[in-house]
Computed example of a mutant assay.
Amino acid sequence: MKRVIFIPARFASTRYPGKPLVQLTGATGLRKSLIQRAWEAAKSVRGADGVFVLTDDDRIADAARAFGADVLMTSPEARNGTERCAEAVAQLPTPPDFVINLQGDAPLTPPWFVEALIDRMAKGDVEMTTPVLLCDAETLTNFVTDRQNGRVGGTTAVMRADGSALYFSKEVLPYVGDLTNPPEVWHHVGVYGYTPAALQAYMSTPEGPLEQAEGLEQLRFLENGIPVTCVPVDGKGRVFWELNNPVDVERIEGVLAKEGIE
């Protein structure tokens, strides 16, 4: 397996405990767990040789195996999905060329987002990549509304003209003073591509103050001088949103209904 997709999932989420098993209602009324919807999104990606759910919780593992997923068990000590991916690479029979980390709370991730990362990683000149999406009016309003109400929603990215990342934040960056005439705001999509070497480097460096403050694992790369390449993707009219808080269930179900996803 040269190109694998890992879906890290943990039960003990700080903001929303048990969220991988939260049931989401699709367009036809069919209810599926968050982790199943994330797995189905991963299975629709072209160019991947395998898809694995990574977890340290038997409840998630049992649910994943029940809908047909391959599962790799990781340790409870893994502090984030990237550390979980590093552990899982060692369980594969041979090291892959690269790994895609599709967050288990992002079931609306379109397959072409992940395929764009696979294409970029396949060129062999980057160590770590992540997609970014220019915010549309609805998503930007959701971002600003969440922060005004004291909720942490999605993540924004700030990057150089060449696509190399400068910073990621749970704040809305740059500052949005007027929603009727906002600046460009880039939504960071919760998918990562790494080489095995980048994962090893990540595990050998300590968690830094920015990662601790923001709770964003990708900042460890930047804090330790490991470049992160942002890959702009086109939403093609689909509203992208992650399940970070209970209020996001209604938002995601609304998109499922709009897109006709069962």
Results as ranks from 00 to 15, higher is better:
V4A: 01
I5C: 05
P8V: 10
A9Q: 07
G18T: 02
P20R: 06
P20C: 09
Q23T: 00
L24N: 08
L24A: 06
A27M: 07
T28F: 03
S33T: 15
S33C: 03
S33M: 06
L34S: 10
R37K: 08
G50N: 01
V51C: 02
V53E: 03
L54R: 04
A61L: 12
R65H: 08
A69G: 09
D70I: 04
D70Q: 14
M73L: 15
T74H: 10
G81N: 04
A90Q: 11
D97A: 13
V99I: 14
Q103R: 09
D105M: 05
T109C: 15
T109Y: 04
V114M: 02
M121C: 11
V126T: 06
C135M: 15
F143L: 14
G153K: 03
G153R: 10
A157Y: 09
V158Q: 12
A165D: 08
F168E: 04
P174Y: 03
P174N: 03
L179A: 13
W186R: 09
Y192R: 10
A197W: 08
L199K: 13
G208Y: 01
P209I: 05
L210D: 10
F221T: 14
K236F: 08
R238V: 14
F240A: 03
P246E: 08
R251I: 15
A257S: 11
I261H: 04
